[in-house]
């Protein structure tokens, strides 16, 4: 069912054109944050309005849309966003990673490898990787302009001096095509290697902060590190209690008040596929 009072995929055509122009420039300058005239959406800022606007600008009626939050298709906000597009765009939806043409995500990259023809849209809360080192946009814009990333390296180095390692576990900064330092959104650093050399188009939308950025397929994306302290993706040292996977990112679930816990895949489609004995990422319908 579609909501007849609204245009296809909710946004008016002028707004979509504005977002589409920003997306093309974002692809042309990988990792650079393109300002765009973010609209007020019928869901709160901070709840995926940037991702929703990017998805709305990209969708065609032929798409199959998957929406995940924390890797899962059935978390409440993922359900809410998926319903929004069912109502306003009438597109087919799916939980299958490999079966989807557009995947909107919050905080995860699916475990199953993506392929050409797929678009991964990230919801981004704070697009500026330097924001927590320098709160002023006027300053950080100048730092990107001059490729002046010393502050970031100092911060990472201080971590090593104090903790013996870089104490950033998610939203781990990357350098794109040897030019822009980019925030990959709050994905766990376990997912960082999947940013690089990915056959899919990766688009990032930050609604409240009014920024769009992108990684074209097969981009060079390097997690910041030091020669003597190389980047290591990390995960809990357990196997999934449901499917037995030892190479997936895990949720920790507390099962009683006596300290018992279990670990299970955060990517629900990946886990369900393995439990059903299907190839990875060909899970639910």
């Amino acid at each position: 069912m579609t909501v007849q009072d609204y245009n296809f995929a909710y946004l008016d055509e002028q707004t979509k054109r504005m977002i589409r122009r920003a997306l093309l420039k974002a692809l042309a300058v990988p990792g650079y944050q393109v300002p765009f005239a973010s609209r007020e959406m019928p869901m709160p800022y901070g709840w995926g309005t940037g991702g929703v606007q990017v998805t709305a600008a990209c969708l065609t009626p032929d798409d199959r849309l998957k929406v995940i939050d924390q890797g899962a298709d059935d978390t409440t906000n993922a359900v809410s966003i998926r319903r929004f597009f069912q109502r306003t765009a009438g597109v087919e939806t799916t939980q299958s990673t490999t079966g989807a043409t557009v995947i909107q995500t919050r905080h995860r990259i699916p475990e199953a490898p993506l392929s050409e023809g797929q678009i991964l849209v990230y919801q981004v809360p704070i697009p500026e990787p330097l924001r927590f080192l320098e709160p002023r946009e006027t300053e950080t814009r100048r730092m990107h302009e001059l490729e002046e990333y010393g502050l970031m390296h100092v911060k990472l180095y201080e971590d090593i001096a104090r903790h013996g390692e870089i104490a950033t576990a998610y939203a781990y900064p990357v350098k794109v095509e040897d030019r822009y330092v980019m925030d990959p959104s709050p994905i766990p650093k376990f997912d960082n290697p999947k940013l690089a050399d990915n056959p899919a188009i990766q688009l990032f939308g930050a609604g409240r902060e009014a920024r769009i950025y992108a990684l074209p397929p097969y981009s060079r994306v390097v997690s910041l590190d030091f020669e003597d302290h190389p980047f290591t993706p990390s995960r809990a040292e357990h196997a999934c209690a449901l499917c037995g996977a030892t190479d997936s990112y895990l949720d920790e679930v507390i099962t009683d008040d006596r300290g018992s816990r279990m670990f299970s895949c955060s990517d629900t489609d990946f886990c369900a596929s393995r439990q059903a004995g299907r190839p990875d990422g060909e899970g639910g319908a």
């Binding site: 905080h107 409240r208 955060s266």
Partner: peptide
């Protein structure tokens, strides 16, 4: 919006 979004699930980043 941004304030209230912190009640959304963050278990992936929290796990990290």
């Amino acid at each position: 919006g941004f304030l209230e979004h912190i009640k959304l699930p963050h278990y992936v980043d929290f796990q990290a």
